[in-house]
Protein backbone atom coordinates (compact mmCIF):
# COMPACT_ATOMS: atom_id res chain seq x y z
CA UNK A 1 0.00 0.00 0.00
CA UNK A 2 1.36 3.34 -1.04
CA UNK A 3 -0.31 5.68 1.39
CA UNK A 4 1.03 6.01 4.87
CA UNK A 5 -1.50 8.35 6.44
CA UNK A 6 -5.15 8.73 5.66
CA UNK A 7 -7.43 11.17 7.41
CA UNK A 8 -11.15 10.58 7.13
CA UNK A 9 -13.58 13.36 8.03
CA UNK A 10 -11.38 14.39 10.92
CA UNK A 11 -12.82 16.90 13.37
CA UNK A 12 -11.97 18.33 16.77
CA UNK A 13 -13.82 20.68 19.09
CA UNK A 14 -12.20 22.28 22.14
CA UNK A 15 -14.21 22.61 25.34
CA UNK A 16 -17.23 20.83 23.96
CA UNK A 17 -20.41 21.80 25.79
CA UNK A 18 -18.82 24.76 27.57
CA UNK A 19 -19.23 28.46 26.79
CA UNK A 20 -15.68 28.40 25.36
CA UNK A 21 -16.51 25.82 22.72
CA UNK A 22 -14.33 26.24 19.66
CA UNK A 23 -14.16 24.10 16.55
CA UNK A 24 -10.47 23.71 15.74
CA UNK A 25 -10.57 21.11 12.99
CA UNK A 26 -13.52 20.65 10.69
CA UNK A 27 -14.09 17.63 8.47
CA UNK A 28 -10.58 17.15 7.10
CA UNK A 29 -9.99 14.27 4.72
CA UNK A 30 -6.73 13.64 2.90
CA UNK A 31 -4.16 11.00 2.05
CA UNK A 32 -0.41 11.26 2.32
CA UNK A 33 1.79 8.94 0.28
CA UNK A 34 4.78 7.19 1.72
CA UNK A 35 7.96 9.22 1.33
CA UNK A 36 6.28 12.51 0.50
CA UNK A 37 7.57 15.82 1.81
CA UNK A 38 4.48 17.76 2.84
CA UNK A 39 4.42 21.44 3.80
CA UNK A 40 1.70 22.57 6.19
CA UNK A 41 0.74 26.23 6.21
CA UNK A 42 -2.04 28.24 7.76
CA UNK A 43 -2.62 31.35 9.80
CA UNK A 44 -2.22 31.04 13.59
CA UNK A 45 -5.39 29.44 14.88
CA UNK A 46 -6.16 27.77 11.57
CA UNK A 47 -6.17 24.38 13.27
CA UNK A 48 -2.90 23.10 11.87
CA UNK A 49 -1.35 22.38 15.27
CA UNK A 50 -4.42 20.51 16.46
CA UNK A 51 -4.44 18.56 13.21
CA UNK A 52 -0.79 17.59 13.67
CA UNK A 53 -1.36 16.47 17.25
CA UNK A 54 -4.11 14.14 16.12
CA UNK A 55 -1.71 12.39 13.74
CA UNK A 56 0.21 10.71 16.56
CA UNK A 57 -2.64 10.33 18.99
CA UNK A 58 -1.68 13.12 21.38
CA UNK A 59 -5.19 14.34 20.78
CA UNK A 60 -8.08 12.06 20.13
CA UNK A 61 -10.27 13.19 17.26
CA UNK A 62 -13.83 13.97 18.24
CA UNK A 63 -14.97 12.97 14.79
CA UNK A 64 -13.51 10.88 12.01
CA UNK A 65 -10.46 8.66 11.83
CA UNK A 66 -6.71 8.74 11.39
CA UNK A 67 -5.47 5.71 9.47
CA UNK A 68 -1.79 4.85 9.72
CA UNK A 69 -0.73 2.13 7.27
CA UNK A 70 -4.41 1.48 6.73
CA UNK A 71 -5.31 0.96 10.40
CA UNK A 72 -7.20 3.31 12.68
CA UNK A 73 -4.68 4.50 15.29
CA UNK A 74 -7.40 4.45 17.94
CA UNK A 75 -8.39 0.86 17.20
CA UNK A 76 -6.77 -0.14 20.50
CA UNK A 77 -6.62 2.98 22.65
CA UNK A 78 -4.29 1.24 25.11
CA UNK A 79 -1.67 0.86 22.42
CA UNK A 80 -1.70 4.48 21.36
CA UNK A 81 1.85 4.85 22.66
CA UNK A 82 3.08 2.64 19.78
CA UNK A 83 1.68 5.16 17.33
CA UNK A 84 3.89 7.90 18.81
CA UNK A 85 6.97 5.92 17.73
CA UNK A 86 5.63 5.62 14.19
CA UNK A 87 4.60 9.23 13.87
CA UNK A 88 7.40 11.29 15.42
CA UNK A 89 6.45 14.76 16.51
CA UNK A 90 8.84 17.68 17.00
CA UNK A 91 7.09 20.56 18.71
CA UNK A 92 7.83 24.26 18.42
CA UNK A 93 10.89 25.26 20.45
CA UNK A 94 11.62 21.59 21.18
CA UNK A 95 14.77 22.45 23.17
CA UNK A 96 12.50 22.88 26.19
CA UNK A 97 12.04 19.11 26.35
CA UNK A 98 15.71 18.33 27.08
CA UNK A 99 16.22 16.89 30.57
CA UNK A 100 18.84 14.13 30.65
CA UNK A 101 22.35 14.34 32.01
CA UNK A 102 23.98 13.99 28.64
CA UNK A 103 22.97 14.80 25.10
CA UNK A 104 23.43 11.13 24.23
CA UNK A 105 20.97 9.97 26.87
CA UNK A 106 18.48 12.62 25.90
CA UNK A 107 18.54 11.59 22.26
CA UNK A 108 18.18 7.97 23.39
CA UNK A 109 15.13 8.67 25.57
CA UNK A 110 12.50 8.13 22.88
CA UNK A 111 14.30 5.23 21.21
CA UNK A 112 14.66 3.51 24.58
CA UNK A 113 10.97 4.00 25.30
CA UNK A 114 10.36 2.36 21.97
CA UNK A 115 12.30 -0.68 23.20
CA UNK A 116 15.62 -0.31 21.43
CA UNK A 117 18.71 -1.36 23.34
CA UNK A 118 22.37 -2.23 22.96
CA UNK A 119 23.96 -1.68 19.56
CA UNK A 120 20.68 -0.87 17.87
CA UNK A 121 20.08 1.94 20.35
CA UNK A 122 23.62 3.22 19.99
CA UNK A 123 23.35 3.24 16.21
CA UNK A 124 19.98 5.00 16.31
CA UNK A 125 21.38 7.73 18.55
CA UNK A 126 24.55 8.23 16.52
CA UNK A 127 22.68 8.25 13.20
CA UNK A 128 20.19 10.78 14.52
CA UNK A 129 23.00 12.98 15.82
CA UNK A 130 24.66 12.75 12.43
CA UNK A 131 21.51 13.75 10.55
CA UNK A 132 21.13 16.83 12.69
CA UNK A 133 24.80 17.70 12.41
CA UNK A 134 25.71 17.22 16.08
CA UNK A 135 29.37 16.38 16.45
CA UNK A 136 30.11 13.16 18.40
CA UNK A 137 32.10 15.19 20.94
CA UNK A 138 28.91 16.96 21.98
CA UNK A 139 27.12 13.74 22.90
CA UNK A 140 28.77 13.47 26.32
CA UNK A 141 28.03 17.06 27.26
CA UNK A 142 25.07 18.17 29.32
CA UNK A 143 22.30 19.33 26.99
CA UNK A 144 22.10 22.52 29.06
CA UNK A 145 25.65 23.46 28.06
CA UNK A 146 24.86 23.50 24.34
CA UNK A 147 24.23 26.62 22.33
CA UNK A 148 20.66 27.48 21.34
CA UNK A 149 20.98 26.02 17.86
CA UNK A 150 22.64 22.84 19.14
CA UNK A 151 19.89 22.32 21.72
CA UNK A 152 17.34 22.58 18.95
CA UNK A 153 19.18 19.97 16.91
CA UNK A 154 19.59 17.64 19.90
CA UNK A 155 15.85 17.81 20.54
CA UNK A 156 15.08 17.02 16.91
CA UNK A 157 17.59 14.16 16.98
CA UNK A 158 15.68 12.73 19.95
CA UNK A 159 12.65 12.27 17.74
CA UNK A 160 14.57 11.11 14.66
CA UNK A 161 16.27 8.41 16.78
CA UNK A 162 12.90 6.70 17.18
CA UNK A 163 13.06 6.21 13.40
CA UNK A 164 9.45 7.17 12.84
CA UNK A 165 7.74 6.37 9.55
CA UNK A 166 6.34 9.88 9.55
CA UNK A 167 8.22 12.86 10.98
CA UNK A 168 6.16 15.92 11.88
CA UNK A 169 8.08 19.14 12.54
CA UNK A 170 6.24 22.15 13.92
CA UNK A 171 8.16 25.32 13.02
CA UNK A 172 11.59 23.77 13.50
CA UNK A 173 13.39 26.93 12.41
CA UNK A 174 11.51 29.42 14.61
CA UNK A 175 13.86 31.84 16.33
CA UNK A 176 16.99 30.70 14.47
CA UNK A 177 19.13 33.13 12.52
CA UNK A 178 19.25 32.94 8.70
CA UNK A 179 22.22 30.59 8.60
CA UNK A 180 20.77 28.38 11.34
CA UNK A 181 17.53 28.13 9.38
CA UNK A 182 19.35 27.29 6.21
CA UNK A 183 21.47 24.54 7.78
CA UNK A 184 18.59 22.93 9.67
CA UNK A 185 16.42 22.95 6.58
CA UNK A 186 19.10 21.24 4.51
CA UNK A 187 19.58 18.66 7.26
CA UNK A 188 15.88 17.89 7.19
CA UNK A 189 15.89 17.51 3.41
CA UNK A 190 18.92 15.26 3.63
CA UNK A 191 17.16 13.13 6.24
CA UNK A 192 14.15 12.91 3.97
CA UNK A 193 16.22 11.91 0.95
CA UNK A 194 18.27 9.27 2.72
CA UNK A 195 15.64 7.71 4.96
CA UNK A 196 12.76 7.85 2.47
CA UNK A 197 10.48 8.59 5.40
CA UNK A 198 7.49 10.85 5.15
CA UNK A 199 8.05 14.38 6.46
CA UNK A 200 5.44 16.98 7.40
CA UNK A 201 6.86 20.45 7.91
CA UNK A 202 4.71 23.13 9.52
CA UNK A 203 6.12 26.58 8.85
CA UNK A 204 5.24 30.23 8.60
CA UNK A 205 8.09 30.76 6.17
CA UNK A 206 6.70 30.43 2.68
CA UNK A 207 10.22 30.70 1.28
CA UNK A 208 11.27 27.59 3.22
CA UNK A 209 8.15 25.64 2.32
CA UNK A 210 8.52 26.59 -1.33
CA UNK A 211 12.03 25.19 -1.41
CA UNK A 212 11.41 21.80 0.16
CA UNK A 213 7.80 20.63 -0.06
CA UNK A 214 6.35 18.34 -2.73
CA UNK A 215 2.80 19.12 -1.75
CA UNK A 216 1.25 21.64 0.61
CA UNK A 217 -1.62 21.39 3.04
CA UNK A 218 -3.27 24.77 3.49
CA UNK A 219 -5.48 25.08 6.55
CA UNK A 220 -8.00 27.86 7.06
CA UNK A 221 -10.44 28.15 9.96
CA UNK A 222 -10.16 24.47 10.75
CA UNK A 223 -10.89 23.38 7.21
CA UNK A 224 -8.61 21.92 4.57
CA UNK A 225 -8.45 24.84 2.15
CA UNK A 226 -6.01 23.33 -0.35
CA UNK A 227 -3.92 20.22 -0.70
CA UNK A 228 -1.99 20.54 -3.94
CA UNK A 229 1.52 20.37 -5.37
CA UNK A 230 3.66 23.28 -4.23
CA UNK A 231 3.69 25.13 -7.57
CA UNK A 232 -0.07 24.92 -7.80
CA UNK A 233 -0.58 26.30 -4.29
CA UNK A 234 1.69 29.30 -4.81
CA UNK A 235 0.14 29.98 -8.18
CA UNK A 236 -3.06 30.80 -6.31
CA UNK A 237 -1.65 33.80 -4.47
CA UNK A 238 -4.94 35.68 -4.24
CA UNK A 239 -6.61 32.76 -2.57
CA UNK A 240 -3.71 32.40 -0.13
CA UNK A 241 -3.87 36.04 0.85
CA UNK A 242 -7.53 35.56 1.72
CA UNK A 243 -6.36 32.95 4.25
CA UNK A 244 -3.88 35.47 5.65
CA UNK A 245 -0.94 33.78 3.92
CA UNK A 246 1.68 35.08 1.58
CA UNK A 247 3.51 33.85 -1.45
CA UNK A 248 7.34 33.88 -1.55
CA UNK A 249 8.61 37.24 -2.76
CA UNK A 250 10.31 35.68 -5.76
CA UNK A 251 7.10 33.95 -6.90
CA UNK A 252 5.30 37.27 -6.70
CA UNK A 253 7.98 39.05 -8.70
CA UNK A 254 7.83 36.51 -11.50
CA UNK A 255 4.04 36.52 -11.44
CA UNK A 256 4.05 40.30 -11.80
CA UNK A 257 6.39 40.05 -14.78
CA UNK A 258 4.10 37.48 -16.35
CA UNK A 259 1.12 39.73 -15.92
CA UNK A 260 3.05 42.46 -17.67
CA UNK A 261 3.41 40.24 -20.70
CA UNK A 262 6.87 38.78 -20.23
CA UNK A 263 7.38 35.19 -21.21
CA UNK A 264 8.46 33.78 -17.84
CA UNK A 265 7.24 30.45 -16.43
CA UNK A 266 4.50 30.19 -13.86
CA UNK A 267 4.99 29.04 -10.30
CA UNK A 268 8.64 29.98 -9.86
CA UNK A 269 9.56 29.09 -6.29
CA UNK A 270 13.23 29.87 -5.76
CA UNK A 271 15.72 32.55 -6.70
CA UNK A 272 17.72 30.00 -8.71
CA UNK A 273 14.68 29.06 -10.78
CA UNK A 274 13.95 32.72 -11.43
CA UNK A 275 17.54 33.34 -12.40
CA UNK A 276 17.52 30.41 -14.84
CA UNK A 277 14.31 31.70 -16.40
CA UNK A 278 15.42 35.30 -16.73
CA UNK A 279 18.93 34.72 -18.01
CA UNK A 280 17.99 33.57 -21.55
CA UNK A 281 15.44 36.39 -21.85
CA UNK A 282 18.02 38.99 -20.93
CA UNK A 283 20.57 37.40 -23.21
CA UNK A 284 18.13 37.57 -26.11
CA UNK A 285 17.63 41.25 -25.44
CA UNK A 286 21.37 41.71 -25.43
CA UNK A 287 21.38 43.21 -21.97
CA UNK A 288 24.21 41.12 -20.63
CA UNK A 289 27.84 41.60 -21.41
Amino acid sequence: MNCVLELKNLGFVYGKGTPFEKRAVDNVSLTIKRGEFIGVIGHTGSGKSTLMQMLNGLMRPGEGQVLLDGRDIWEQPKKIREVRFKVGMVFQYPEYQLFEETVYRDIAFGAKNKGLEGDALDKAVRDAADFTGLKPALLDKSPFDLSGGEKRRAAIAGVIAMNPEVLVLDEPTAGLDPMGREVLLSQITRYHKECHNTVLLVSHSMEDIARVADRIIVMNKGKLAMFEPTKEVFRRGDELSRYGLKVPQITNIMQALRRRGFDVPEGVLTVDEAFDALLPLLQKEGKLW
Binding site: D177, P178, M179, E182, E207, P248, Q249, I250, I253, V271, A274, F275, L278, L279, L282, K287, L288, W289
Partner: peptide, 21 residues
Protein backbone atom coordinates in the same frame (compact mmCIF):
# COMPACT_ATOMS: atom_id res chain seq x y z
CA UNK B 1 28.65 36.90 7.87
CA UNK B 2 25.92 34.26 7.91
CA UNK B 3 23.16 36.65 6.91
CA UNK B 4 20.50 36.66 4.31
CA UNK B 5 19.31 39.19 1.78
CA UNK B 6 15.78 39.73 0.49
CA UNK B 7 15.06 37.48 -2.49
CA UNK B 8 14.73 40.51 -4.77
CA UNK B 9 18.24 41.66 -3.85
CA UNK B 10 19.66 38.19 -4.31
CA UNK B 11 18.14 37.85 -7.77
CA UNK B 12 19.40 41.26 -8.83
CA UNK B 13 22.83 40.46 -7.46
CA UNK B 14 23.02 37.22 -9.41
CA UNK B 15 21.91 38.91 -12.63
CA UNK B 16 24.43 41.67 -12.11
CA UNK B 17 27.08 38.97 -11.75
CA UNK B 18 26.18 37.85 -15.27
CA UNK B 19 26.58 41.31 -16.65
CA UNK B 20 23.20 42.97 -16.23
CA UNK B 21 23.63 46.65 -15.58
Amino acid sequence: HRLDVPQSAELAYKLRGCGLK
